[in-house]
């Protein structure tokens, strides 16, 4: 077994590619008043950065804007990140 443990094997880790949130130019901001919790944003998020209770994980959100574009209630605004 010892030879097996020496194999060069990558381990599944969160943030394997770093905090991809630093790529973001525009940040999604959810307007809870307009949101009807349909979950379409979470369904279409390519990186699963929107959780079940529709909170955006800003450590990893790349700011692609699909959530805001697909939202049927237009409840998500893309706001420019301030430095």
């Amino acid at each position: 077994m010892s030879s097996r443990t020496r194999l060069a094997r990558s381990r599944p880790t969160e943030g394997a590619c770093g905090k991809t949130g630093t790529w973001r130019v525009f940040r999604p901001v959810i307007d809870r008043g307009k949101c009807n919790a349909c979950g379409i944003c979470a369904m279409y998020c390519p990186d699963a950065a929107i959780s079940e209770d529709l909170e955006v994980d800003l450590d990893f959100c790349k700011g692609c804007g699909i959530c805001a574009h697909e939202c049927p209630k237009k409840a998500i605004m893309m706001v420019r990140e301030e430095k």
């Binding site: 969160e14 590619c17 990893f60």
Partner: peptide, 17 residues
């Protein structure tokens, strides 16, 4: 989810979706 946050795919990549 079997892809952990986050891959280095481009923003808006439909391959990762």
């Amino acid at each position: 989810e079997y892809i952990l946050k986050c891959t280095s795919a481009c923003a808006g990549c439909s391959d990762s979706l």
